[in-house]
Nucleic acid binder design. Sequence first.
DNA 1: CGCGTTTGGTTGACATATCAACCACTTCGG
DNA 2: CCGAAGTGGTTGATATGTCAACCAAACGCG
Lengths: 153, 153
Amino acid sequence: MNKNELSEEEMRIWHLWKGSFHRIFGRVIKDMSEHTGLSEGDYGVLDRLVLLGDGSLRQQELADSMNWDKSRLSHHLTRMEKRGLVTRKPLDTDRGVLVLITPAGRSVLDDARPIVSKAIREHFLDQLTEQDIESIAKLAERTRTKSSAAPLP
Amino acid sequence: MNKNELSEEEMRIWHLWKGSFHRIFGRVIKDMSEHTGLSEGDYGVLDRLVLLGDGSLRQQELADSMNWDKSRLSHHLTRMEKRGLVTRKPLDTDRGVLVLITPAGRSVLDDARPIVSKAIREHFLDQLTEQDIESIAKLAERTRTKSSAAPLP
DNA sequence: CGCGTTTGGTTGACATATCAACCACTTCGG
DNA sequence: CCGAAGTGGTTGATATGTCAACCAAACGCG
């Protein structure tokens, strides 16, 4: 018998977990995008520009804070720039680029915030027990970094 | 004060949950795709063809079982067909289409199974406590269907 | 100096996801 | 029989994600 095979019960947990995430997350994103036209990525960018940089961030910092690679962010910003949500400005101090939220971007973000909050509360937070919250926090902690306990050399 | 605004703590839980999912899920998919060249969708299709239909399923049933719309599946099958993983055959009984796994597809699936199982165990199951499992199951149950308690007419 | 490496970004190609339009055929209510 | 609505799929356009290649400036050091 293969020690790697998953039992019915193990597969069930995996699928329940995956399914719950997609359902809940999908509902939140759908509520937001239907009301504001923003995608998840759009919201993440605008939100961080304001919260982390008071309206602007250097591109690499933004990428790091989103866990996106530079290519993905570059493509995404190109699209957002085309829609007038952000602008890019080369820095003279160094060879970086500063990403700035536009007034239009700020306005859309302000519209989106309460909708996102409401959606997260409704579809996610309101469904959680105290025990769920504890589980979520601890699982996040346990999986934060690759827990590859390297054996001694 | 806006009753909808999320507290620091509430946002933290949301981000922890989202982050854990992406980390864990990403690790599983990465392990699989690096070793077998299959995407998540590819695996889902092949897996269901074998488990649910002993090698073939009608396209609509496959779509339903994956929670995909017909368009998404149609595009995906076109790509998989091009790679020789599946074939499509029109039914004569009715206007549907039968999707069949090819020998090549079956072989790739057989290679993938132990890798996927190992990855799910390592990155997910081994990180769970009994309490986590209970939480996951109950949250899935609570969010299964849109809990929109329709008022009496 | 002078060459290799790193840093910060862009670009093109291709895979995947979503949406709406289309199509052929069936079903059903007059 | 007619026409409206449904079924099972395809298609094209566009958005998003990933990967590798490229580029120019900055740095590290012999």
